[in-house]
């Protein structure tokens, strides 16, 4: 597994709150990396740094290095619109637009200037197929995205993220609002997607991290305590705190 994302001594402050402390980490290409840790440990903050969604929170300050494929995310070479096109994101609550299924998927491509109906049709179909939703919705693409179930909505959001052709997909506790069966479907989907995309997921469900991911990173109070192959981290952690957390002694 080739490393794609390099994070080196990254510090992040929300005004005076030190949210990430000297985070150093590499994230491999075309694999699933899971961030675990108790609430408020900084895992979502780091995830949101990867597509610079933190920019919108006033008072955010960043020090250190975070680079994708050798390009610093906070340098002048990177414009945030392109970054977010390349690094898609799926949120905790399914958040489709109150538009048709078709228009939800086409939203991203249209932002980036695709107008041709034929091209959009094509993108909608391939994105929905990639998100394993095509068969369920192909006959009513004009129906409101809010009329389908929560699990389907979340897969729609994944399809929407894929429609702008990203390299990296960020998932911020993407299954925590879903029932077990929908969760399972998304986990299976993520397994399929990792052949084509680099996936970084935040989860508060350790079993999910163990089931799904290739690499796991354990956060505590804004620090990365440990990261390694998922199997190794769960069977043979090197840090006592990791062991305490994964064996359910806190968090």
């Amino acid at each position: 597994m080739q490393p794609l994302i390099h994070i080196n001594k990254l510090n992040l402050f929300y005004t005076s709150f030190h949210a990430l402390k000297d985070v150093t980490l590499t994230i491999p290409e075309k694999a699933i990396t899971a961030f675990i840790g108790p609430s408020g440990c900084g895992k979502s903050t780091l995830l949101r740094t990867l597509n610079r969604m933190n920019d919108m929170i006033p008072g955010t300050r960043i020090e250190g290095s975070i680079a994708i494929g050798g390009t610093e995310l906070y340098s002048n070479e990177v414009d945030v619109e392109t970054l977010r096109k390349k690094v898609g994101m799926v949120f905790q609550q399914p958040n489709p637009f109150p538009k048709s299924i078709y228009d939800n998927i086409a939203y991203g491509p249209r932002l980036h200037g695709i107008r041709s109906k034929q091209k959009l049709d094509e993108i909608v179909e391939t994105s929905l197929k990639s998100a394993a939703l095509w068969d369920e919705v192909k006959d009513h693409l004009k129906r409101s995205a809010l009329s389908i179930s929560g699990g389907q909505q979340q897969r729609l959001c994944i399809a929407r993220a894929l429609a702008v052709n990203p390299d990296i997909l960020l998932m911020d506790e993407a299954t925590s609002a879903l029932d077990p069966i929908s969760t399972l479907k998304i986990e299976e989907l993520v397994q399929e997607l990792k052949d084509r995309y680099t996936i970084v997921m935040v989860t508060h469900n350790m079993h999910q991290a163990a089931r799904v991911s290739n690499q796991t990173v354990f956060f505590l109070s804004g620090e990365v305590i440990e990261y390694s192959d998922t199997e190794k981290l769960f069977s043979n952690p090197t840090d006592q705190r990791t062991e305490d957390y994964i064996s359910g002694r806190f968090g």
Binding site: M53, R84, F97, Y107, L111, H112, R160, A161
Partner: peptide, 23 residues
């Protein structure tokens, strides 16, 4: 969350306002 969805797809502020917030 609706603004976030738009920004996360690479929308600018005006694109988000005109295509998501105003509708």
């Amino acid at each position: 969350s609706r603004r976030d969805a738009s920004f996360a797809l690479g929308a600018t502020k005006w694109q988000t306002v005109s295509r998501s917030v105003i509708p």
